[in-house]
Computed example of a mutant assay.
Amino acid sequence: MKNKLRILLAAVLIVWLPGCSEAVDLENLTLGLVIGVDLDEHNQLVSYFSSPLFNKNVSKSTLTLESNAKTLRATRREFDSMATGLAVGGKTQVILIGKRLMQHGDWFSLFDVFFRDAKNSLSERVIAVDGDVSEIMQNIPQDMPPLSLHLASLIDTKELRNETVKTNLQQFDKQMFEKGITPYISLIKVENERIKLTGTALLDKKGRLVMTLDQNETTLLRILQNSSRGQQSLSASIPGAQKSDIYDKNNLTFSINSVKNKMKTGYRDGKFEFDIKLNMFVSLKERLFTYDMRKNREKLEQQIQEQIKKQFEELIKKCQKNQIDPIGLGQYARAYQYKKWKQVQEHWGETFSEADVHLSVKTNIKYMGPVK
């Protein structure tokens, strides 16, 4: 008797289980794993939608759709009218932003639908395209993995080497509204018909593209942010080495085993002051010039310090010149000089451009390699 009651109760629960009425079979869905937004040559909004095809009878593995609707919500209606299944964006993995749109600025509110609709995810990687989004969406090489998988893996693996940043939609939202930092996202482009990661795009608070960083500069940025992890390597050109016509014989490359980042924040003579001290333990990975490491180790450490310090200072100066703060020094200003910060928080970029930033670098070579 008890078993019959249990079976009856289970049957009732299954019948009344909420959400089952909204279930849709996978073959009746068009999953937008990659979404791209850009401006065309007439400055008209254009959106792209890339979905995998689960049909062995078609030659292509990806469906790419295009729309000129004025909002992302409206584009879904158009995509529904063109796709064989219901267009859904809840599984989106990558959002591409075209260069024209970034140069225009004032585009972030387009993505309100992602935050407003709870069915949407906020873990999508936001990626800047140095060019037109159509180059990425419509020219996919046949020997490449599905676009969503390729782009996600490209960003994830290079982020582990600190050669780019990995900014998802939720993090980008914070960067746009957090007054002590300016936004930064991955940067890719098409080169020789291949998708290539080039570094990082730095934006202002309106989403306008202000400047770009190569992979080496991105590593410097992540060290300053104190967000570096995994493998880190930097290169420096040591002056005085013999020159070569075919390669940079002055070059020296090292990996960073660990780095200690100490920050002090002050305010004097109407300006914020930041004192950054970096202590790095490094291992040599490549040295293209002849050098007696055992006799002149301290001299080489001093030369590395001087060259790397120059690279850090150049990066900071470029950021100040463009009135952006991707390092997040404004957050330190708020934490340690709140009364002064409160007066300038609405125009922190301009204030940061006038701040005094002092930086010192100390390197300690822990490993020189097995070759003398």
Rank of each mutant, 00 (worst) to 15 (best):
K91R: 11
T218G: 09
E217F: 10
I304R: 06
H104D: 06
L29N: 04
T71L: 09
I238V: 14
T218E: 06
I7V: 12
R6T: 05
N3K: 13
I155K: 09
I14L: 15
R100C: 03
F108C: 03
V88E: 14
Y332Q: 11
P52G: 10
K60F: 10
K2T: 11
K285P: 00
N226W: 10
G85D: 07
T30F: 00
A152I: 11
M1W: 06
S50H: 06
P52R: 05
E298L: 12
K372E: 13
L9W: 01
S81M: 08
F312T: 02
T182Y: 04
P370S: 13
F115Q: 04
V15I: 15
L5K: 09
F108D: 02
L149F: 12
L96G: 05
E301P: 05
I185N: 02
L53C: 05
V24M: 14
D173N: 14
A152M: 10
N28W: 04
A118S: 13
K295N: 13
T200Y: 05
G98E: 08
L13Q: 01
I127M: 07
K271M: 09
S233D: 09
L147N: 04
K179H: 08
M137Q: 12
Q311H: 07
Q170S: 14
I140W: 14
N364G: 09
L17N: 05
I14A: 15
A11S: 15
R125S: 13
K196E: 15
N192W: 01
D356A: 06
L53H: 01
A335C: 02
E298M: 10
M211E: 15
I136A: 06
S235R: 11
L154T: 05
Y367Q: 14
T75E: 15
K56P: 02
I324D: 02
F312N: 09
R116I: 11
R334Q: 14
R77S: 13
N279W: 02
S121F: 01
F352G: 03
E354G: 06
T351I: 09
A23V: 11
K205C: 07
N322P: 00
I97F: 00
T30R: 02
R287N: 10
I97H: 00
A201F: 03
D292E: 13
P18M: 11
Q93G: 15
Q103A: 04
R194Q: 15
V34H: 04
T164K: 11
A87T: 09
Y184H: 12
K372A: 12
K2S: 11
D80F: 08
